[in-house]
């Protein structure tokens, strides 16, 4: 994929949308997997902003990573409801079993682990998110199960998906 050409198309698509920078950045992230620093100048030109401004926006939001992440993003909820149901243990387990800290990606490039503050699933804590799927009542065992499925092609969904 020619990233820059693709980003140009997206810039064209979003530049006239009022406040369209954040929707664009989501779209770029969706298309490329991250917001390449090299794309900032073309985004800035499209939106009639300075490079600094675009950089400021990207760096403000946790969602907008500027380097590639793993094939799958796993987010563990750290908010209070999940804490009350043992999310700290899940966190510790996840870091240990994947062998990475928050913000890191497994060596095989499969999984990036991130903290998240509330997935809106507080009644069924603790929760985690894998890509666009939310999982409830996560335990160390179900975590391992879900991760192992990421390594199976076309995995079905186990666990208590909401």
């Amino acid at each position: 994929m020619d990233k820059s050409a693709n980003i140009d198309e997206l810039v064209e698509q979003f530049k006239t949308l009022p406040g369209g920078l954040i929707p664009l950045l989501h779209a770029v992230k969706h298309a490329v997997g991250y917001i390449p620093n090299e794309s900032v100048p073309q985004i800035a030109i499209g939106f009639n902003l300075s490079r600094a401004e675009v950089h400021g926006v990207i760096s403000f939001y946790h969602d907008f990573n500027t380097s590639p992440v793993g094939q799958h993003t796993v987010q563990i909820c750290r908010a209070e409801a999940c804490q009350s149901m043992g999310s700290r243990q899940i966190e510790a387990h996840a870091k240990k079993s994947l062998g990475i800290e928050y913000g890191e990606t497994t060596k095989d490039g499969r999984v990036t682990l991130q903290p998240v503050y509330c997935l809106g699933n507080c009644a069924c804590s603790p929760s985690m998110r894998i890509d666009d799927d939310i999982y409830a009542r996560v335990s160390p065992a179900s975590f391992d199960q879900l991760i192992s499925e990421l390594y199976v092609p076309a995995a079905g969904n186990a666990g208590e998906k909401r």
């Binding site: 406040g19 926006v57 946790h62 969602d63 907008f64």
Partner: peptide, 26 residues
């Protein structure tokens, strides 16, 4: 629907407006 981007502060009304305008959610 406009999607936030991982910023709790953007629930604050003025920060939300900044974010909707495509800016830092200050």
């Amino acid at each position: 629907v406009r999607l936030g981007a991982g910023a709790y502060i953007c629930g604050e009304e003025t920060s939300l407006l900044e974010s909707l305008e495509g800016k830092r959610g200050m």
